[in-house]
Design a protein around this nucleic acid. Structure first.
Lengths: 151, 151
DNA sequence: AGTGAGGCTTCCCACGGTGGTAAGGTCAAT
DNA sequence: ATTGACCTTACCACCGTGGGAAGCCTCACT
């Protein structure tokens, strides 16, 4: 199976397949005499796994662990659940942050005429003196995950 | 005002102040004889403006426009409201996507024992055959905005 | 007057993921 | 034998942020 075929079969772009291989997320594909990569069913499975996990917002780092667990038939489901739980919490934190932004923005926007007049509470707020930001944005380490996947 | 003082006064790291200057978001700061940057009140205002706007998830590109509007006393508030509205819509799309992920993950997690047994519906789902993903992730251009701000 | 600490300066590197593109090899079919 | 569709590697870009090196500058203290 060529990389193009693997790409179609998995929904992962050829570009990303090579990338995943390069960072060790995906096992190094076999090579034909032409030096073309040759993917088997196992690779396709892994690619689909990765694709699906990315769709669910897991970071590549998390997927590495999940794939490792997948391959270990003996793994305790505890670990999988733990990773998933942490990811859910992460997503929820980010959702809450964004909801805070939306609320603040909607509030400002509601008081902005949005016509030819220059008066605008949105800019007033942005430019104004110390403003009590909704939450001071904790900067805990957080996988890039979805953010880029959504680009 | 040195860059350190400006950083403290605005809450923007010295690193980012230089970066914002380099990309033209912030006007080039005056220099002293030592070649040290010298910030005035106007710069501090702009930095606070940027800081606040980043907190609200605006991308640097959007902030460039907003700052331009701020400086134009004659600007029609329409434009500001329009930018803000687009940003709100963007945020809401991303929130919805993440909420979809959370829902799917919670569903899977609920059916995973999370103990020593290896059986795990989460991995089953990830590794399983074609799954009907919540939404096929539209990839419309979207400013990086929050994603990185939240790191 | 010298020394050390802590500014400041520029410059490059890394991250996460993804896309682009150029320069070359290969294949299959006309 | 040529064309066009594929493959290969290798590099660059994005966004926003942090890290660090190497070299000045300044100030306070000895």
């Amino acid at each position: 199976m060529n990389i193009g075929a693997a790409s179609k079969a998995s929904g992962v772009s050829a570009k990303m397949i090579r990338y995943y291989e390069s960072i060790g997320l995906l096992a190094k594909a076999a090579r034909r005499e032409n030096s073309y990569r040759d993917f088997d069913e196992r690779d396709i499975h892994d690619l689909r796994f990765i694709k699906r996990a990315r769709t669910l917002g897991f970071s590549v780092e998390e997927i590495t662990r999940l794939l490792g667990l997948w391959r270990d038939a003996q793994r305790p489901s505890r670990e999988v659940k733990q990773i998933t739980g942490a990811h859910i919490a992460d997503l929820e934190t980010r959702i809450a942050e964004m909801q805070g932004m939306v609320a603040a923005l909607k509030h400002l926007s509601a008081h902005c005429h949005g016509d030819d007049r220059p008066a605008c509470p949105i800019l007033q707020d942005l430019g104004g003196p110390e403003i009590s930001s909704a939450s001071p944005q904790d900067k805990r380490k957080r996988a890039a995950g979805l953010r880029e996947a959504a680009l």
